[in-house]
Simulated assay, not measured.
Amino acid sequence: MNTKSILALLPAVCLLAGCSNDTQSNAPSDLQSIQFSVNVPNAPRVPTTTETIKTFNTWAFADGKPYMSNVEVVKGENGLWGYSPTAYWPVDESLNFYSYSPALETTKPVTADSPDIADYMSPGDVDLLYGVNMDVNGKTDKQVHINFRHALSQIRFFIRKQPASISNRAIDVKISELKVVNVATTGSFNFPKETTSSTSTAKGEWVTTTDNGEIAVYANATADLGDEYAEYRNTGNIFAIPQTLTETEATAATYSGSYIRVLCKITDPATGVTLWPSASDPNYVNDLNGGYIVFPLVNDSNNNWELGNAYRYNLTIGIPSSTDRINFDVTVDEYQDFNDIPVEN
Rank of each mutant, 00 (worst) to 15 (best):
G64Y: 06
K65M: 11
P66F: 01
Y67V: 03
Y67S: 10
M68A: 13
S69C: 12
S69R: 13
N70S: 02
N70H: 01
V71E: 08
V71D: 01
V73Y: 04
K75A: 11
G76Y: 01
E77Y: 06
W81Y: 09
W81L: 02
S84D: 09
P85G: 13
A87R: 10
A87H: 04
A87Q: 09
A87P: 06
W89I: 01
P90A: 08
P90W: 11
D92H: 15
E93L: 07
L95R: 00
N96L: 03
F97P: 03
F97D: 03
Y98D: 02
S101V: 05
S101A: 06
P102W: 02
L104A: 10
T106V: 15
P109I: 07
V110F: 06
T111M: 08
A112I: 08
D113W: 04
P115H: 09
D116N: 11
D119Y: 04
D119A: 13
Y120N: 01
M121G: 09
M121I: 07
S122M: 13
P123V: 01
P123D: 15
P123Y: 02
D125I: 03
D125Y: 14
V126T: 09
L128H: 04
Y130N: 10
G131R: 09
N133A: 14
M134A: 02
V136C: 15
N137K: 12
N137S: 12
N137I: 03
G138K: 02
G138R: 13
T140R: 15
D141V: 00
D141T: 07
D141R: 00
V144I: 13
I146W: 13
N147W: 06
R149W: 05
H150L: 07
A151D: 01
A151E: 03
S153P: 07
F157M: 05
F157H: 04
F157C: 08
Q162S: 11
Q162A: 05
Q162I: 09
A164V: 11
S167D: 03
N168E: 10
N168P: 05
N168K: 09
R169I: 07
R169K: 09
A170N: 15
I171P: 14
D172T: 06
V173G: 00
V173R: 01
K174A: 06
I175T: 00
L178N: 03
V180L: 14
V181E: 03
V181F: 02
N182F: 09
V183Q: 12
V183E: 12
A184M: 12
A184Y: 00
T185G: 15
T185W: 11
T186M: 08
G187W: 00
S188L: 12
F189E: 11
F189P: 06
F189Y: 08
N190W: 10
N190P: 07
N190Q: 12
N190E: 07
P192F: 04
P192E: 10
P192K: 12
K193T: 15
